[in-house]
Amino acid sequence: MSDRIQDLQKSLSEGLPQCSVEIRRHGGVELISSKENLVGVLAYLREHFGYRHLSHISCVDWLEQNQFELVYILWNYESRIQLFVKVRLARVNGSGISVRHLWPQADTYEREIAEMYGLPFDGNENPRELILEDWDNKPPMRRDFDTRAYSKEAFYDRPGREDAKDVRSVISGRSGEEIPEIAIPYTRK
């Protein structure tokens, strides 16, 4: 297995000199591309390396570096080696490039990223809502979106107890039940 991965890494670095290719984890190869080359790289991998299947597009929010990272996860049915193609994009006013013409299913992932991270895709303008409905706040998966503060403000909270007392005996007493012997050692004092 690892021989085949090393062979793949070698032929990828020869075929795509503008990208850096590394073996990052067991059974996976990582390829870092620039935004300009991305579509060409993906098409090349698809045509010449048998990466016919796009498993997923995922997005990472690098808040400190002010960047978004898109990870295209590709799968080769013959060699059974997973490939991660990564590209960094500007976080403010940045945009990705749609690969719907290569893989129609990319549409779903692009819609999700556009909705959850607020990252638009050139070539996939005005995507329909995917999961959220009538959302008018900051895209919720961005790291600077404070979900706790939002939920405190938007939804009612049921007041609860502040202490951490064990109330099992009180509750079981209400219906005349007894705490079974095996549970007694785990009773909090």
């Binding site: 959220l132 919720p140 979106f145 706790r148 939920s151 405190k152 939804f155």
Partner: peptide, 10 residues
Amino acid sequence: YWDSYNTIKV
């Protein structure tokens, strides 16, 4: 889901 942005709590 007590701190989720998208689920009601009570």
